[in-house]
Amino acid sequence: MTLSVVQCTDESRWDASVNALFGHPQQLWGWGQTKASHGWSVDRVLVQDGGELVGSAQLLLRKLPLPFRALAYCPRGPQTLPGREAEVLAALEVYTRRAHRPVALCIEPDWEADAAPARALAAAGWRSTESTILIGRTLILDLTLSEDELLAAMSKKHRQYIRKSGREDLQYQEVTRAELPKCLGVYRETADRAGFGIHEDRYYLDIFDNLGSASPVYAAFQGDEVVAFLWLSVSENTVFELYGGMTAAGEHLRANYALKWLAIQSMKERGAVRYDFNGLLNDGVSKFKMGWAKHENQLAGTWDKPLSPLYPVYSRAMPLARDGIRFAQSTAARVKPALKSAIPRLKSTIRGRSQTG
């Protein structure tokens, strides 16, 4: 039977479908709602076999200058029934091409790189790209393990610092919306110190409001001041770290150790089974992450399905368009000129081919 693809416009039904298929928090309604308020549009579709739900995908769509039209992006999706991945992707490809006519459909599925669905992507016409949005190399804790087992898997130093920071004169607790600006102040301080870009405060407040209980924030308080915070997003199955930061005082007190352990304990108690640290690089933050377990995980990575004859030009000449997905607001001003500058080269190439053909 041919699978059917239908739009979903009901928030409760959508989140229920994501959780029923053990989907990722970046596939929840509130995440798409936030992106739709900050330069994107969103299309949520259910993939059905008769009356049975076999998959779903939240597509984020970013307009690109002509002739490229748009890019369709499915963060950590789609989610499917086991064994139906290839069918769902094929149906999603047909739907996306007809409904949106983008230059490509980009997916970063929440699949292990050595799992059968990931290994089958290349044979189905998907193209692996190094221009990643969400980092595939990461650390995922199994929250079905006992706390003693999780502690045993950590480095000795991490266990020591959890105990040490837990004895400091700090209060560790979940953050209210009224306290959130203090966390954002710490985030700005952390970004300035480390030299990375962040969004305006409105973006983070929208995440908090739109995801609600699916996006808890934990903080270490020294008196009334936040010295460290950790921001999560959570589906029924998976926890995904979004943001975090520390002041100089928080770093001195090793507040991030007891804080992260509190978050892990809280998510385990909540019933989640996977805790994703959201990427490993070769930096100090990743070194801190890797001390929480003796293993690491490699997810499938970033894959494009070309949906336009212009995809080869897009993939060569427009890397800024893909890089802009990380911080679309801050990079949009650079993406558009890059795309426009490529159009004359594209026209020249087309004229050359027509003259020689």
Rank of each mutant, 00 (worst) to 15 (best):
Gly83His: 10
Leu92Val: 00
Asp114Tyr: 00
Pro109Asn: 14
Asp114Phe: 09
Thr96Leu: 01
Tyr95Arg: 01
Pro117Gln: 15
Gly77Asp: 04
Ala104Arg: 06
Pro117Leu: 15
Gly77Gln: 03
Gln79Trp: 00
Ala104Pro: 11
Glu108Ala: 04
Ala113Cys: 07
Ala99Tyr: 11
Tyr95Glu: 09
Glu93Thr: 08
Gly77Thr: 07
Thr96Ile: 10
Ile107His: 12
Ala104Asn: 14
Ala116Glu: 10
Ala91Val: 11
Val103Tyr: 04
Thr80Glu: 13
Ala91Trp: 08
Arg84Ser: 02
Glu87Ile: 03
Pro102Trp: 09
His100Gln: 06
Val94Asn: 14
Leu105Tyr: 05
Pro78Tyr: 03
Ala86Arg: 05
Ala90Arg: 05
Leu89Asp: 08
Glu108Ile: 12
Arg101Thr: 15
Glu87Cys: 10
Leu81Tyr: 03
Ala116Val: 14
Glu87Tyr: 09
Thr80Leu: 12
Asp110Tyr: 15
Gly77Cys: 15
Asp114Glu: 11
Ala104Thr: 13
Arg97Met: 11
Trp111Thr: 09
Glu85Gly: 04
Val103Met: 01
Pro82His: 00
Pro102Cys: 10
Leu81Met: 02
Val88Trp: 00
Glu108Thr: 13
Glu85Trp: 03
Ala99Arg: 05
Cys106Pro: 02
Cys106His: 08
Ala90Gln: 04
Arg101Lys: 13
Leu81Gly: 00
His100Thr: 07
Ile107Ser: 03
Ala86Lys: 04
Ala113Pro: 02
His100Asp: 08
Pro82Lys: 00
Ala115Pro: 01
Ala118Asp: 01
Val88Tyr: 07
Leu81Thr: 08
Arg76Ala: 07
Leu105Ala: 03
Val103Gly: 06
Arg98Gly: 03
Leu81Asp: 06
Cys106Val: 14
Pro78Gln: 03
Ala115Cys: 09
Pro78His: 06
Ala99Gly: 09
Glu112Phe: 10
Ala90Trp: 06
Ala86Pro: 00
Glu112Gln: 13
Leu105Arg: 02
Ile107Thr: 14
His100Val: 05
Arg98Asn: 08
Val94Thr: 15
Gly83Thr: 12
Arg98Glu: 13
Pro78Val: 11
Glu85Asn: 05
Leu81Asn: 07
Ile107Trp: 11
Val103Cys: 01
Val94Tyr: 02
Ala113Asp: 04
Arg119Leu: 14
His100Phe: 01
Pro117Asn: 14
Val88Glu: 03
Tyr95Asn: 06
Pro109Ser: 09
Leu105Val: 08
Pro117Thr: 15
Leu92Trp: 00
Pro117Val: 14
Glu112Ala: 11
Glu108Gly: 13
Arg97Phe: 09
Leu81Ile: 01
Thr96Ala: 12
Arg98Ala: 14
Gln79Arg: 08
Asp114Gln: 01
Ala115Lys: 12
Ala86Leu: 05
Arg76His: 12
Cys106Gly: 12
Gln79Ala: 14
Gln79Thr: 15
Trp111Gly: 06
Leu81His: 10
Arg97His: 01
Asp110Val: 13
Pro109Thr: 14
Arg119Ser: 12
Ala116Asn: 05
Arg84Phe: 08
Tyr95Gly: 12
Ala118Pro: 13
Trp111Pro: 00
Ala115Trp: 05
Leu105Thr: 05
Gly77His: 00
Ala86Glu: 01
Arg119Trp: 02
Cys106Asp: 06
Pro117Glu: 14
Thr80Gln: 12
Ala90Pro: 07
Ala90Met: 02
Ala115Val: 12
Ala104Ile: 03
Asp110Pro: 05
Leu89Ser: 10
